[in-house]
Design a binder for these strands. Structure first.
Lengths: 368, 368
DNA sequence: CTGAAAGCGCTAACAC
DNA sequence: GTGTTAGCGCTTTCAG
């Protein structure tokens, strides 16, 4: 039982040789008579023959597969990304295999190596930590990579890597600007603890919008999550919740919150409610990413849209060209424009009195 | 460039033969002198040698990889499941490769075949459509499978397959019972259009709870989503929203809604709000699954907890034993018990007057 | 147009 | 203890 027909069986049944079958399999039907093609196809059909990927790969040294590294598919944003990458890859005849890096460089490297051993020659690194040095060796050995959400500087031994990202600085700017336009002056930044470049850039955009409006940047309004939760994105919302609590517990709490991403925003909203506040009446919240769920939440989340399908498509396209050798030019950085999607979590701030009551509630709680 | 050292290079550098290196690689260091081990390890280290997976696989016919088929990782529940399966698999030395089936039997089959060609001998089919006949052939060829969320009957040519699932009937029962205990009498069922067994079972549990309470089952209170949206789970929440709208638009709308799963519940909640209703004041909603997000939503979702880590662990365990030949016994069906998690989307129903106003709003809208 | 044959890198007998 | 060797299933020159 469990007998797999091999190419030889097909050849025998079709009354021809292995190489002829192989030629047909590899898109060279012109090298044989139509009737031979016919016979071979029948034999394949009858036997239910399927070529062994391993054998083919061993021979050609190539697997039509790309690897995708994300922090964790359990984060809806990366789930959506994984799906988008799959669509783009399959359109080009590639499969995708996925690894959850948990933002751990050691895990990322391990995955990349496993992928490489598997015959995979291209991987997309999604939301990696800042430094990409752990990929240098593999890239030197012929692995093509494109970074998602991270523009490499090529400094300090870091490999220069193609990249595809949204303009994160602008995303942070748009989110913050929206709140400023609404009349907010005390705007908190709910940041994860993740050491990623997109985080830094989004934060910069926040700073820029503030500066433009003449609002001084107050470090106490920028809150990281609890590093003890880890950076693995399984707890993105928890991070957001913890960070928002820090902000909301301030003597002079912010009236508006920018979250590093939508999952953090979900957590931030939870924090506001933990303290008995209402959104957007007491506190406005804006996310970044526009995950599929954003519009279904209550209140529907105002956020900055990241064009995930376009980004994925571009990343896969770039990678396939590198793998195929079609593109051996200099490092490319593709940047997409984000846009704001106003929904229901933002509104003009209320009077200070209302705000203070929120801050007080906290005090009472910790005193009780 | 891009030169990969092979086992022969290691042997040469270590001044030994390939087979000795291979023996070490395959956990047989006892067959050689300690100093030989030492030299080989140094050589491997110096060369940065890593064995080719393809070659090994070709030789042994086996890949330490399991395949996982889910409708779509962009659904948070399946994202969480994918991660849980990965954890369980890696603990046993297996990698996992993932396929988004979109609940399409043709895609499922295609993936399973690709996996098989890849040397994968075990796959977990998550939330597959009802009939598993499309896997029969592959199973006949030696592919081990375990179904997640589906208990095979083995009838009508369907392959008898191991399975791991939550007691879905009980889940539906618990959800419904909760609403009944709260005083609800008109309870709608927000069902997807997905032709899965878990859907059928959950619905049965709903019917059972109703029957027990002496509440007649009214078919008009069971709403499927819009089949045009497809069953691919990318739109689970949209399905829920559409189905809930149908229910809420009834002349005598339900006061409580059971949703097929949490994503449907999210959509159902959105539908209630679309109509100006409040949760749980106007309508109570209970989900099933308890996705990580459930507790973070507003209001926090009352739902039935599905022990996803335990289920994944059990599925992987079963599969690995089958692959390893450790277990060749009869088909096994492992069933876990669900439990209700009461959060904030459920409450006692209000008077009929309040209810009717919701129904009326609809009428006004369609008239306007 | 078709076939024979040489490996791809590795494992596991089986000899020494 | 260690080395030799025959393939795993396929692709691809290179002869016929």
């Amino acid at each position: 039982m469990a007998y797999r027909p091999r190419i030889r069986d097909v050849a025998t049944l079709a009354g021809t040789s292995v190489s002829t079958v192989s030629n047909l399999l590899n898109g060279r039907p012109d090298r044989m008579r139509p009737e031979t093609v016919q016979r071979i196809e029948e034999a394949i059909e009858r036997l239910g023959y399927r070529p062994s990927w391993a054998a083919r790969q061993l021979k050609t040294g190539f697997a039509p597969v790309i690897g995708l590294l994300v922090p964790s598919v359990s984060n809806p944003f990366h789930g959506a990304m994984a799906r988008a990458v799959e669509v783009a890859a399959q359109a080009r005849g590639f499969q995708v295999v996925l690894g959850n890096s948990l933002r751990d460089p050691a895990r990322e490297r391990q995955y990349a190596e496993d992928f490489f051993d598997f015959g995979i020659r291209g991987v997309i690194a999604g939301s990696s930590p800042f430094d990409l040095g752990h990929f240098s060796e593999l890239m030197g050995r012929g692995l093509s990579m494109v970074a998602f959400d991270l523009v490499t500087t090529g400094e300090g031994g870091e490999p220069a890597m193609d990249s595809v990202s949204m303009d994160n600085r602008r995303a942070g700017y748009l989110a913050t600007r929206h709140l400023i336009d609404l009349g907010h002056r005390r705007i908190g930044y709910v940041s994860g603890a993740t050491p990623t470049m997109s985080r830094r850039d989004r934060l910069e955009g926040y700073g820029q919008a503030l500066a433009e409006a003449g609002i001084p940047l107050e470090p106490e309004l920028i809150a990281a999550g609890d590093a003890a939760l880890g950076y693995d994105d399984t707890h993105a919302a928890e991070h957001g919740r913890a960070a928002a609590h820090n902000l909301l517990g301030l003597a002079a709490p912010p009236t508006g919150l920018i979250a590093l991403n939508d999952m953090h925003a979900v957590g931030a909203c939870a924090a506001v409610r933990d303290r008995g506040g209402a959104i957007p009446e007491d506190v406005s919240v804006v996310g970044i990413d526009d995950i599929p769920l954003a519009g279904l939440l209550y209140p529907a989340l105002t956020t900055v849209h990241q064009p995930i399908e376009k980004l994925s498509e571009a990343a896969v396209d770039l990678l396939c060209k590198r793998i195929g050798g079609t593109d051996s030019g200099p490092v490319r950085h593709i940047v997409f424009d984000p846009h704001l999607v106003v929904r229901a979590t933002t509104a003009a701030p209320e009077g200070r009195g209302r705000q203070r009551s929120l801050g007080r509630a906290t005090t009472e709680r910790s005193a009780g």
